[in-house]
Amino acid sequence: MEFSLPETVEFDLPLNPFEFMGRPDLADLFPNAAFSVGHIKYDVGAGEVTLNGRLLNDDQKTALAAACRFVSEQRRKEQH
């Protein structure tokens, strides 16, 4: 079975201010309070990551990857 990866992966970077302030109770009460703080684009072939069109450096890419892993782990825990 063959498949091909997309050339780019893009997503918005949401922020729920209540979660950011450490108030998950309010985040649950107001789930639509999140807003986008930026747009991430990953060029698979070039290995470049941009935030709102600006190229991220290695430290920024590492921090973004860590944040994505954290969110993914939290969502997995919520599903179980």
Rank of each mutant, 00 (worst) to 15 (best):
M1D: 09
M1A: 13
F3P: 02
L5Y: 02
L5P: 00
P6D: 06
T8L: 10
T8Q: 15
T8P: 04
T8A: 09
T8I: 12
V9I: 15
V9A: 14
E10D: 15
E10Q: 15
D12H: 11
D12N: 14
L15N: 10
P17W: 02
P17A: 02
F18N: 10
E19H: 12
F20D: 10
F20A: 11
F20P: 00
P24M: 04
D25R: 10
L26M: 14
A27Y: 06
P31Q: 09
P31M: 08
P31D: 08
N32P: 01
N32T: 10
A33E: 14
A34C: 10
F35C: 06
F35N: 10
G38H: 08
H39Q: 14
H39L: 09
H39E: 12
H39N: 13
Y42Q: 06
Y42N: 08
V44E: 07
G45N: 13
A46N: 11
E48N: 12
E48R: 12
T50S: 13
T50V: 09
L51R: 11
L51I: 03
N52E: 13
G53P: 08
G53M: 08
R54K: 14
R54V: 09
R54W: 03
L56D: 01
D58Y: 00
D59I: 05
K61G: 01
K61A: 02
T62V: 00
T62F: 02
A63V: 10
L64R: 06
L64F: 06
A66H: 08
A66E: 13
A67I: 07
C68Y: 06
R69P: 01
R69C: 05
F70S: 14
V71T: 11
S72T: 03
Q74E: 07
R75V: 03
R75I: 03
E78F: 04
H80S: 10
